[in-house]
C-alpha cells in the first residue's frame, strides 16, 4: 500500500519547524508504524537527506519511549495501543497521514518528533516513591493487602510514562500521569505514611513544570495505551484536598 505523510521536521529546539511531505510507497500492511518510518528513513539516507528522528526503544508497547500524534490523535487511531504497536493495517491505501510530536511547553522538541519528557522524572523525584532504603524491608507477606486494592494499585501502576495524556489533553495537563503514580502508592498500605506529603509535593512539582490544569475532558484516558482511568484523577484530587486542608 501507499501513504502520504506530512511529518513535522524541526532541526533543534531553536528551529521553528515545519511540515514536510513524504511518500511511503509499497509498504506492507503488516508493518508497524515505526517500521514504516524505518523504511522512509532508509530512503532519505539513500538520497542524502537527514532521516526523521523519532523516539522508540522496546517496540512492544511497554517502555513508553515512542510517541507521535497521528492525524490529531496521540499514538494514532487504535485504542489502547502505542505507536510502536500500531500497524499499517489500521490505515487505508492512499491515506494522507499527519505526524506531529507531543506538543506541550514542558515537553520541548529536541528534534523532529523527539521531545524532552524530563518533567515526568522530576515529578516522580518530588515524591513518587516510598522511602524504604535497601535492607529495611519486613517480610513480604507481613502486610496482607486485599486483592481488590492490589489489583487497583496495579491498574494505576501500569502507566508507561509515555506522555500521551499530556499530548492529547487540550490543556496540556499531566494529571493522569501524576494521578496514576499517586494512586498506585496511595492505595497500598506501604504508601500510607507518606501519602499526604507525596500528593502535595507531586502536585506542586507538576504545576511547577508548567503543565495545564484538568477540565475533565477525559481525552487522556481515551489515548492512554494502558487505558488508565480518570477515576485516578478524582482520587488524586481527593487526596490533595485532604492533604492540603487537613493535618
Amino acid at each position: 500500500m501507499d501513504v502520504t505523510l506530512h511529518v513535522w521536521r524541526q532541526k533543534s529546539a531553536a528551529d521553528r519547524g515545519r511540515f514536510v511531505r513524504y511518500e511511503a510507497r509499497n509498504i506492507s500492511p503488516d508493518m508497524s508504524f515505526l517500521e514504516m518510518f524505518d523504511v522512509v528513513n532508509e530512503g532519505l539516507i539513500a538520497r542524502g537527506e537527514d532521516p526523521i528522528a523519532f523516539d522508540h526503544d522496546c517496540r512492544e508497547g511497554i517502555c513508553g519511549t515512542c510517541g507521535m500524534v497521528i492525524n490529531g490523535v496521540a499514538h494514532g487511531p487504535r485504542r489502547g495501543t502505542t505507536v510502536c504497536q500500531l500497524h499499517l493495517r489500521s490505515f487505508r491505501d492512499g491515506d494522507t497521514i499527519t505526524v506531529e510530536p507531543w506538543r506541550a511547553r514542558p515537553f520541548p522538541v529536541i528534534k523532529d518528533l523527539v521531545v524532552d519528557r524530563g518533567a515526568f522524572d522530576r515529578i516522580i523525584q518530588a515524591g513518587g516513591f516510598i522511602s524504604v532504603p535497601t535492607g529495611s524491608a519486613p517480610d513480604a507477606n507481613a502486610i496482607p493487602i486485599p486483592k481488590p486494592d492490589a489489583d487497583l494499585a496495579m491498574d494505576a501502576a501500569s502507566c508507561i510514562g509515555c506522555g500521551a495524556c499530556v499530548a492529547a489533553c487540550p490543556n496540556g495537563a499531566a494529571m493522569l500521569f501524576t494521578a496514576a503514580k499517586v494512586s498506585h502508592l496511595g492505595l497500598l498500605p506501604q504508601g500510607q505514611p507518606e501519602r499526604r506529603q507525596r500528593v502535595r509535593q507531586m502536585v506542586v512539582a507538576m504545576d511547577r513544570e508548567g503543565f495545564g490544569s484538568c477540565t475533565n475532558y477525559a481525552e487522556c484516558e481515551a489515548v492512554c495505551p494502558k487505558a488508565i482511568s480518570i477515576r485516578f484523577i478524582a482520587r488524586m484530587n481527593r487526596d490533595y484536598l485532604k492533604a492540603s486542608l487537613m493535618e
Binding site: 506530512h6 519547524g17 511540515f19 500524534v69 492525524n71 490529531g72 490523535v73 499527519t98 506531529e100 506538543r103 506541550a104 511547553r105 514542558p106 492529547a168 487540550p170 490543556n171 496540556g172 495537563a173 508548567g210 503543565f211 495545564g212 490544569s213 477540565t215 475533565n216 475532558y217 477525559a218 481525552e219 484516558e221 481515551a222 489515548v223
Partner: peptide
C-alpha cells in the same frame, strides 16, 4: 495556565471522547 502549557498547537486535533459541552 492552559494556554501557556501549549504554546505551539497541533495542525488539527479531533476530540475522541471529550463532550461538546466540556469543550
Amino acid at each position: 495556565m492552559n494556554r501557556r502549557a501549549r504554546p505551539v498547537g497541533y495542525t488539527h486535533q479531533d476530540p475522541i471522547q471529550a463532550t461538546y459541552a466540556s469543550r
